[in-house]
């Protein structure tokens, strides 16, 4: 088995037992870490794998969160059912929005996706159709109920997030060992060569956007449950930059890398809370140093994910 899968399993075991050893405030930090890890992986599908410079990912995270919030608060839809639109709406929006700009290269795509994110924030801040609650967002999101059982404790929410991350990791593993996942890598590494091998660049990039956005939407729904509220600043461009940075600092397409990146960007700031603003100075420096010293990330991806029966002669 690949080393990174072993690491992922160890990580899941540790996170599985984490609630037994932590108080409720750490449990909240742990939950946020799990949710943001899911978002980071979804960004990694688009940026780290397909190589598309998507810097508006918070938009899709936000669409999922607002879908759950709006449907639950304004229309009384039980939380559990809001999961599906929270996945489908970002998925469809990804195809609609990314479709016309998918051919743009690197920096052009980056600027276009930032544009989408800014427009999204404008829209929800202006309380469109009286649904998004303006700058304050939406409060009073219900708890998850399944067959009349309420899952409202922090531990319950933690484990729901844990399940979501586990599913995301399973998807990442399946993607890695499939035609679709490989096609993304080929496009990323050399799109001319990829096309010449018969790969429809546009299709597989859109696939990456759709899949990544759907997963981000699921994470957004979980985020809304965790805070029982949503507001625009959780989904602005600064957040998108964070997700983008996590992938590059941790290591594009690297499971351990993305987890480390999320830990560094979201959990360390919590641990060093008492140092207030000074910590951001340290993080800024850490980001710069990582890019200089380890341009492929703290834990770069290792390729060579091939079946064992092909490794017979390797030295």
């Amino acid at each position: 088995m690949r080393q990174s899968y072993k690491i992922a399993i160890v990580f899941l075991i540790v996170m599985g037992f984490f609630p037994l050893f932590s108080n409720s405030s750490w449990l909240a930090v742990g939950t946020t870490f799990l949710i943001y890890s899911v978002v980071a992986f979804s960004q990694d599908i688009i940026l780290g794998r397909a190589g598309a410079f998507q810097m508006g990912h918070a938009l899709f995270f936000g669409l999922g969160a607002y879908a759950t919030a709006i449907l639950n608060v304004h229309f009384g839809v039980p939380i559990i059912y809001t999961f599906i639109p929270a996945i489908l709406i970002p998925l469809i929006m990804a195809i609609v929005l990314a479709g016309p700009i998918i051919h743009l290269k690197g920096d052009y795509l980056l600027v276009a996706t930032i544009g989408f994110n800014i427009i999204f924030i404008q829209v929800i801040q202006n309380d469109v159709f009286g649904l998004t609650g303006g700058p304050n967002g939406i409060f009073g999101i219900d708890v998850v109920r399944i067959f009349g059982v309420e899952f409202m404790s922090q531990t319950a929410i933690y484990y729901m997030s844990f399940i979501l991350l586990t599913l995301t990791l399973l998807i990442m593993r399946n993607l890695d060992a499939s035609k679709y996942g490989r096609a993304m890598f080929y496009i990323n590494k050399d799109d001319i060569a990829a096309q010449s091998m018969g790969i429809n660049v546009r299709y597989y990039k859109l696939y990456a956007f759709a899949l990544g956005s759907a997963i981000a939407g699921a994470a957004g729904s979980m985020f809304a449950i965790q805070y029982s509220a949503v507001s625009p600043e959780a989904f602005n461009v600064v957040q998108s930059i964070m997700f983008f940075t996590i992938v590059l600092v941790g290591g594009s397409a690297s499971l351990p890398g993305v987890l480390i990146g999320t830990f560094v960007m979201f959990v360390l700031p919590e641990i060093f809370r008492e140092f207030a603003t000074a910590r951001y100075l340290v993080f800024g420096l850490a980001m710069i140093l990582t890019m200089i010293l380890r341009p492929r990330g703290i834990w770069p991806v290792k390729f060579g994910n091939i079946p064992n029966y092909l490794k017979k002669d390797t030295k």
Partner: peptide, 11 residues
Amino acid sequence: IRLFSEMSVAE
């Protein structure tokens, strides 16, 4: 030559 140079020969 246009290979996917970071990727393995088999890939």
